[in-house]
Design a protein around this nucleic acid. Structure first.
Lengths: 249, 249
DNA sequence: CTCCACCCTTGATCAGGATCAAGGTTTGTT
DNA sequence: AACAAACCTTGATCCTGATCAAGGGTGGAG
């Protein structure tokens, strides 16, 4: 593991179908063929339910385009987002019969689906796949733990700043690293309500805190969703995180 | 995966060293020998630090006895627990150089340690190991997501009830299932402060809510740490969780 | 073009949990 | 036995974020 090249990169599904082959140079041909045969694509409209908690899980999938959420709802309607699914993220747990969480499309979403049974067979027969899935699961676990710190201990303002920073980081991964001094621009893919579900707040508090960050010049707004970050460090200072955050692997 | 027998059961390390052999009937002898050679045991006293965030990780380990915590601390001292480690739980991320979280012994703790490099080699060479680790990581991810719902949306009282229920469930796993109607007894392995770190509360609020549950007859206390649950359903009703919780795999 | 649905903002008030403070209990040490 | 240190409980007060309420965009459907 570590920096060793993954042989089958499930994340590459984001650029299906070509990428599988590109990364699978070291795969056995029959494994590749299996993967290709299993694949199918599905599309969802904004707000559409992809899976309801309790549904039978026929598929596992990889997000190709768009944004989806994983969430849990209590009987009285309180809901908490427990996963934000961006392109290349994986949906579904191999070995699980019934979905445990609601999966909802936030924007237009395309999934690359694999039928569950044969995919489980692939995991069992192809060590590289389970190794890759393990790495992805551990990354998600780290993200979940950072999220737990946010939910349990951060103030509303810190939560909002953290969310903007997280989205900036994930969309910034594409851009060149030297673009650090020019102002960053980020489109929030979420409504105020969805952000509230993410952060364990109400939508009113989200709105107020965004207004507050704007008033204090930490961010600028262009429309409701387009955020301009004039000084990334100023934003990061609002998150409550270690200033040298992210160095520890 | 699913209900398929794991070949190497890392969890079995809790009953080291015999259990490895019992479960490893299908292992290649040299793999078994590798596991045995790598093992060493370490002990820690209550309150002792096992790892500090930022430390070099020389080892991965499995908890054999005792209770430890994974936690994150912000610069100003706010801390959030992000993992509760009971016997059979795994410590350390293969492939990671520096620890990302503080690991602290809560009670007397014994770890079964494996040197990191050779263990990573074992993962790469033994598919059953990465498959088992994947399953364990996915279990932890589910636990983390339930925890996120707790942190983000539950009231203080619900949080306390949930914590007691979680501890009851984990210690009850051992007992016979027909013991459901007799009163359950649980020893809280945590101080009020540690519980507060778990739940995203202050220790005063933890104390008050425990008193509240006691006043309302949901629990009885015998000393500070020994909890008697006269009616498990009454406790579960306080958690805010779905009444039929736990059915969904 | 108009209307409606959805999304967002802001204000006023409320309440749950944090904070500050004091004292009690248990455990282990000399 | 006396004491100290840790741990726990309870009270008083404060403050952050929830709740209740009203109104302002904005974009798509007819």
């Amino acid at each position: 593991m570590g920096d060793q090249q993954p042989i089958v990169d499930l994340k590459s599904c984001a650029e299906c179908p070509i990428r599988h082959k590109a990364v699978c140079a070291r795969c056995e041909p029959h494994e590749l063929a299996d993967l290709e045969r299993m694949k199918s694509y599905r599309s969802y409209r904004p707000g559409e339910a992809i899976v309801w908690a309790g549904d039978d899980m026929e598929f596992v999938a990889s997000v190709v385009t768009g944004v989806a959420t994983l969430s849990q709802t209590m009987e009285d309607g309180r809901t908490q987002m427990v996963g934000l699914l961006l392109p290349s993220d994986f949906i579904g747990r191999p070995g699980r019969e019934k979905a445990k969480y609601d999966v909802t499309a936030v924007s237009d979403v395309t999934l690359c689906c694999f039928r569950k049974r044969p995919f489980e067979g692939l995991i069992a027969s192809t060590p590289a796949v389970s190794q890759r899935l393990l790495e992805m699961a551990l990354d998600e676990l780290d993200a979940a733990r950072e999220w737990m710190l946010l939910l349990g201990r951060k103030t509303a303002r810190e939560k909002i700043a953290s969310l903007i920073a997280i989205i900036a980081r994930r969309s910034e991964a594409v851009k060149s690293p030297e673009a650090r001094d020019t102002a960053l621009e980020v489109d929030l893919p979420l409504t105020r309500e969805t952000m509230a579900d993410y952060l364990g707040l109400t939508l009113e508090t989200v709105s107020r805190q965004i207004s507050g960050l704007k008033r204090d010049g930490v961010i600028q707004l262009n429309g409701k969703r387009h955020v301009i970050i004039p000084d990334l460090d100023a934003l990061l200072a609002e998150t409550g995180d270690d200033s040298d955050g992210g160095f520890l692997s």
